[in-house]
């Protein structure tokens, strides 16, 4: 996990590459502003479980009203 930007209320976080095997290396990004989150390219159902777990630790799933931007390709 890498913090790209943080001013206290707005954060840009580069999450782990959750891929494995022959999957394409993919950066999953999380943007959080005042407790609301947006995931970019969540990566499909194979990595979603791991992604959800990490985001739950970061901002808490109860307040997690997220948006996802889907590219709808095989790699997410």
């Amino acid at each position: 996990m890498e913090i790209l930007f943080d001013n206290g209320v707005h954060k840009n976080i580069l999450l782990e590459d959750f891929g494995h095997g022959k999957m394409v290396q993919a950066n999953v990004h999380l943007i959080v502003d005042n407790g609301k989150g947006m995931i970019l390219d969540p990566g499909g159902h194979k990595v979603f479980k791991h992604l959800l777990q990490e985001i739950g630790v970061l901002i808490g799933l109860i307040i997690f009203k997220t948006r996802m931007l889907l590219q709808l390709q095989m790699d997410g």
Binding site: F5, H10, N12, I31, D33, N34, G35, M38, L69
Partner: peptide
């Protein structure tokens, strides 16, 4: 709107799919 910030979903068509978007975050 994400929290208190306007996020810009901007066209990135053909880069590489025909219906593709990029995201610009004006805060960071």
């Amino acid at each position: 709107t994400l929290g208190n910030t306007d996020m810009y979903i901007i066209p990135g068509h053909w880069l590489h799919s025909p219906g593709n978007f990029q995201v610009y975050d004006p805060v960071s």
